[in-house]
Amino acid sequence: MAAPGQAVGSGAQETCGLDRILEALKLLLSPGEGSGSSSLQVTKHDVLLATLKSNLSALEDKFLKDPQWKNAEWPQNSVDVTWSFTSETLLLLLCLKETMLLLAANFNPGKPNPRTPEVAPALSPDALSISQQKTVQFVLQFVVTLGICPYLMPGVGVPLRYRTEFGAVIQDVVCLDAAPDATRRLYTSCRALLNVAQHTSLGSLIFCHHFGDIAAGLCQLGFCPTKRKLLTAAEEVLTEEERTLSRGALRDMLDQVYQPLAVRELLILQGGPPQSCTDVKTQLRCRAPAWLRRLCGQLLSERLMRPNGVQAVVRGILEGAGGKK
């Protein structure tokens, strides 16, 4: 399967408008016909899978035949419909990011008129409306839930089934035995989301709401011990270069975000949920593995040694204890 990060044709990026891409994302996330069914014969798992398949089919019928999308290289379908859905959603997010960057680069607002200083400056064409931001937030939530969380090892992050009822359904419908490998899926999702985050406003939406899950994925990809002596080159899912890229991406992301947020999420990864969490189910999560506890301790020490590091660590602890986001 072509990686979403490499599958977008430049022609598609230039011709696919912002509204068209957002329309495609809305179509992928529209509720299915069976979502309101009360039949006891139709389980939540069946409804979810049917909805994902239906929306993928609708997207192909409506957009893949559109000449404006003809240059886009769409991912090959996987046996696991949840991954096919995630791949196409990631690809659309990458198209959205590239389109927004092109719009911003071509924007020339002109010089302000000194005779009318009270007139607001022209809005950049890559700015998202409130409604569009909500759509992107919903899309990102789906991508992280389908593309990252199911592939985290026990003890790495908060398990899906302990978050929401819907999370438990997602965990049960993902087919881990289907190609591509779970680790490859996790790597593709994390790298694609970091690519999307290169646009400032999209990066804010990603890191404000999903920093912890992406950090957990990068920790696992870059630092989880592997039995290298037992694997041949063909059997290795990730190359050493990809593991190195994951380690670098984690450190870059930690340096980029609001430091108390980084501290809070590292503390959660290292030792469990914040003190304000009273949900018994969340308290039952597996203990973080030793390699992750050591890594988080090292990363927290690095946060402490940065300028204003003590303040960031204290604020991260207090905000975590207070349940702030």
Rank of each mutant, 00 (worst) to 15 (best):
E165D: 12
V263C: 14
L102E: 15
I268P: 00
K324I: 03
D172E: 08
Y151I: 04
L230Q: 11
S57E: 06
M1W: 12
E235Q: 11
C286H: 12
A122W: 03
L292I: 08
G248R: 14
A288G: 02
D66M: 12
C296K: 05
S201Y: 09
E236V: 06
W74T: 01
V136F: 00
K62E: 15
R264C: 07
S124N: 15
L94R: 08
E236I: 01
V237F: 02
R161Q: 05
L261G: 03
G110W: 03
G212P: 01
D255S: 15
E14S: 08
Q298N: 13
A50F: 10
L28K: 13
P159V: 04
S38I: 09
D46H: 11
M100F: 02
Q275M: 11
L22E: 00
H209L: 03
E60M: 09
L91K: 03
M305Q: 15
R303P: 02
A321T: 03
E240H: 14
A216R: 02
P159T: 10
L205F: 05
T82F: 04
A24S: 13
V257Y: 05
W83P: 06
R293A: 15
A233Q: 13
P112A: 15
V139E: 01
S39H: 13
Q283I: 01
D19T: 03
Y151E: 06
L205T: 00
D126E: 04
S10E: 15
L261H: 06
G248F: 09
W74K: 03
F107E: 10
L238E: 01
S124R: 07
S201M: 11
W74M: 10
T164Y: 09
L94D: 02
L48V: 03
S189L: 13
C219G: 09
I206A: 00
G248M: 04
E98P: 06
Q13S: 06
E98W: 05
T200P: 01
A120V: 10
D172H: 04
S129W: 03
R293E: 12
T188V: 14
E98I: 04
R251Q: 14
P154E: 07
V173P: 02
K62A: 09
C149M: 05
L202S: 00
P117R: 13
M153L: 14
E73K: 11
S124C: 12
L231S: 14
V79Q: 10
Q13W: 09
Y151M: 08
